[in-house]
Design a protein around this nucleic acid. Structure first.
Length: 273
DNA sequence: ACCACAACCTGGCCGC
DNA sequence: TGCGGCCAGGTTGTGG
């Protein structure tokens, strides 16, 4: 479910809920999802949270008086909620009780996501690329990365080791805005197209964060409220509908096992027909 | 080194 | 109603 804008929305709320609070109770219902040992629980209980933040699509909990952290990932259907509905109670795998009485539940239908304790240096050794909203994500960086890579530009952008945080929705939307066909070999992009893509990606992610993320079915923020960005999608999930730029019906193909949406007229493969 | 693909789970939807 | 098949916002391991 969640890509960078959704994770950012969740993290902003988690930071408000957790920062400065101590975790005074932890209940684990599904150990495979939240594999805390007794040792981990001893470490965690009564410890104060200093910050909750995001790296790519990972959620990071920092604590006082320790260099260890909690690292979370929502994968497809994970969410943190303070107000679970009846339907979600059966998919709750853990709950955290804070010293102010708040209770935050980790809910995950498909059980792909989860939460684990990591050491201080773990984050740096993970194969994660640049943050797309940072000043290090530039035309020069993208141009250098696509050099020598023949895979489709969509597959390249989905790979978190070059640029991280993008997923299926925002890759399709960014390629549409920059009029680049998803099947174009990455190395075939011109500098001009790389420049355009960098700008599209930053702009689309920022708008999605402003809109509190895209809710298609599962995604909700911690108060179980939907995002609003789904109302602004140009190609994702728009199969058969007229392109909002040229009225040609939006097409959907399979690329790397993922549904891929594009306008066959705006996003051409051949640069000079 | 690069890249495609199956696997991990559950639930919703569509067609028969 | 029921059942099979396909789809889903992500990542990882395997094998060519």
């Amino acid at each position: 479910m969640p890509e960078l804008p959704e994770v950012q929305t969740v993290v902003d709320e988690l930071d408000t809920l957790f920062r400065g609070r101590s975790i005074i109770g932890v209940d684990i219902y599904t150990p495979s999802v939240i594999p805390f040992t007794d040792d981990d629980l001893d470490w965690l209980l009564n410890r104060s949270v200093s910050a909750v933040w995001r790296r790519c699509k990972y959620i990071v909990f920092d604590f006082e008086k320790t260099n260890d952290r909690l690292l979370g990932h929502l994968r497809m259907t994970g969410k943190f909620v303070s107000q679970p509905t009846e339907n979600e109670v059966k998919h709750t795998h853990a709950r955290f009780v804070l010293d102010n009485g708040d209770v935050i539940h980790y809910v995950d239908i498909r059980k792909f996501g989860g939460l684990k304790r990591i050491g201080a240096e773990s984050l740096q050794t993970m194969p994660l690329g640049v943050e797309p909203l940072s000043s290090t994500f530039t035309t020069a960086h993208l141009s250098a990365c696509v050099n020598g890579r023949n895979r489709p530009i969509k597959s390249f952008l989905m790979d978190q080791q070059f640029v991280c945080g993008l997923g299926n929705i925002y890759v399709d939307e960014s390629l549409f805005r920059s009029r680049v066909h998803p099947l174009r070999p990455a190395q075939s992009l011109t500098d001009k197209e790389c420049r355009s893509l960098v700008r599209s990606i930053k702009s689309i992610l920022r708008s999605a964060i402003t809109n509190m993320g895209t809710t298609l079915s599962d995604y909700r923020n911690t108060e179980n409220i939907s995002g609003q960005n789904q109302h602004y999608l140009m190609v994702y999930g728009q199969t058969g509908k007229p392109c909002r730029r040229c009225s040609t019906p939006i097409e959907k193909i399979k690329l790397g096992g993922r549904g891929t949406h594009f306008c066959p007229r705006c996003q051409i493969i051949d640069e000079d027909p």
